[in-house]
Every structure is written in C-alpha cells, then in structure tokens.
Amino acid sequence: MRVTLKQNNEILRKIEEISGENVFACYQCGKCSAGCPMVAEMDLLPNQIIRFLQIGAGEAVLEKRTIWLCASCFTCAARCPKGVNLAKLMEGVRATILRQSNSDQVAPPEMVKKPLPQIALISAMRKFTC
C-alpha cells in the first residue's frame, strides 16, 4: 500500500493521552492482527495502526476504516506479549476523531432499522456517536 506520510506527533500525543497506552512498547510482532476477528474487513492491520502512529503518520490512521471496524473484543489486548492494550488505542483514535469533528461517525438514523436489543443500540451509540 502506498501512503504519503505527514509527520504529526500532536495526534499521537492525543491518542496516548486518551488511551493511556504507549505505542512505543509495541515491537510489531503482529500477534494482535493474527487474532483479530475483524481483520478481514480492515484496510489497515491492527499492528499497522500502531506502526503508523510510531512513525508519526497519525493523520493517515484517522482516515482508515479499521478503527471503526474494531469491535472492542480485547483479543489483541489479551494476547499482546508486550502488554499493549490495542483496544484502548483504537478507542483513543475514535475519540480523537469524534471530538475533533464533533459529529457522529454513524448517526442513529443510519443504524439498522429492524428491531435491535437495547444492548446493541446503546453500545453502537457509545462507539460511533459523540
């Protein structure tokens, strides 16, 4: 994949502040991506999200679908040999975007119209709306 890198450490600082995680603890073994249930749908692997953040390409991360496909299943967090909680970093990226744009990623009217249990709607709203 070809990407143009624009160095931006401000984004990384924000994401680390929100998530409380240190991206430089990651040594790129790829275990998180190997076990991620959503990986087949993603446009950037979970470990690549971290790599992009490490090299200052945070802006490219903000544009990816990956963060909105993460289901917060904590599989990556449970398996990371370096103790990185990637689920929290994903939330850090989502929160950065939602706060900056102050608009919903998926607004409630765009969600599934057929009946859903509250648990599905509330959790989706917590993840996709600001």
Partner: peptide, 16 residues
C-alpha cells in the same frame, strides 16, 4: 468459543 461474534457491529454492519 472465545471468538468475537461482532458485538455492536450488529447495529451498523449486520452482514459482518
């Protein structure tokens, strides 16, 4: 048995 079912994606991406 420990694989994620897709969780809240059901409200936005039911096909996944």
């Amino acid at each position: 048995q420990v694989e994620c079912c897709g969780s809240y994606m059901t409200a936005v991406k039911p096909d996944i």
